[in-house]
């Protein structure tokens, strides 16, 4: 029996960390006598953006977290957020293999799977967004808290992306220091931001970028039986966690609607235009990085 040490990019109480714990439990149950996973902790043991390095150095064997944290070394992570094809399909069409190759080359880690991908990101605002003549939104003059991966998209809508530390967001919204933010549906209530956010722009954009990676030597050192077990567990978990998060997102959507967050619904062509802008900024960024994987990733991850 081999024991793999694992870390997660999220504190263990949060929804995403619990999803990973679900995967760990699944492996530990199926893998008795073959392979086990030992959770070492979350951001309290390694800063999230240093965890991938800890895996490639072999200090821990496995990590779960957003691939875009490594976007400075792995521009290919844009294919995760800009992708539209689900994990089951990317296992079949070879997309996962392309990404695996890229992550091994750029980060020195082995990509096992990408659970929790069925996540949409939304723009939430404190004031009502202006509408354009063709039914779209015009966010000019709005300052939105953004992660680097949204910057270009927000700018294309006229908004000014600003960076605000997580801990300062609550007070910033309370005092109107900025006008809104981009965030997934899952977890928006964890920090009680929904108290100040009055509007949510629908449709949601992007896709989850969470991945489970292993140290390549640790992976190679596993018995074939253990490798198979992990691969199967990852594939199964991609489906199970996907369903779980889809359900959770629906629940949250209903909850925040009930709490008074109004939905700004974009329809038909305006919605398509909005989404095009979102997805295209990701692929554009990947293309500009000069990645040799661009064509293969675009083919296997994107089907809009």
């Amino acid at each position: 029996e081999t024991t793999l040490k694992a870390v997660s990019a999220f504190p263990s109480n949060l929804a995403f960390a619990q999803s990973f714990q679900g995967f760990v439990d699944l492996v530990n149950e199926r893998g008795k006598g073959v392979v086990q996973i030992q959770m070492m902790g979350g951001p309290e043991v390694f800063p999230p953006n240093q965890q991938i390095d800890a895996v490639s150095r072999g200090i821990v064997d496995m990590q779960y977290g957003p691939a875009t944290y490594s976007i400075g070394s792995l521009p290919e992570a844009y294919a995760f957020v800009g992708g539209t094809v689900d994990p089951v399909e990317t296992r079949k069409n070879g997309g996962l293999d392309v990404m695996r190759e890229a992550m091994l080359e750029k980060l020195g880690v082995y990509l096992l799977g990408r659970p929790d991908s069925d996540i949409r990101f939304y723009i939430y605002t404190t004031g009502e967004p202006k509408r354009t003549g063709d039914g779209g939104v015009d966010l000019s003059g709005m300052q939105l808290r953004a992660l680097p991966i949204y910057n270009k998209f927000f700018e294309s809508l006229g908004a000014v992306p600003i960076s605000v530390p997580v801990a300062d967001v609550y007070t910033g919204l309370e005092r109107n220091t900025f006008d809104g933010l981009g965030f997934p549906m899952i977890g928006i209530r964890d920090l009680s931001w929904d108290k100040f956010l009055k509007y949510r722009i629908d449709p949601g954009f992007f896709q989850g970028d969470l991945s489970i990676v292993l140290n390549p030597e640790a992976w190679e050192g596993l018995a074939p039986e253990a490798q198979e077990l992990l691969t199967q567990a990852a594939a199964d978990w991609e489906v199970q966690s996907g369903e779980h998060f889809t359900g959770l997102a629906k629940e949250t959507e209903a909850e925040i609607a009930k709490a008074g967050v109004e939905t700004v619904q974009l329809e038909g062509e305006a919605a398509e235009k909005f989404l095009d802008a979102a997805y295209e900024t990701s692929w554009q960024a990947l293309k500009e990085s000069g990645s040799p994987y661009y064509d293969r990733l675009r083919e296997t991850f994107y089907d809009r």
């Binding site: 953006n49 976007i71 400075g72 070394s73 680097p148 910057n151 600003i162 960076s163």
Partner: peptide, 14 residues
């Protein structure tokens, strides 16, 4: 040698 960057509001070479 690897040329990676720390991506914040701007990219800073690691």
């Amino acid at each position: 040698l690897r040329g990676g960057a720390d991506i914040r509001s701007i990219a800073v070479p690691e």
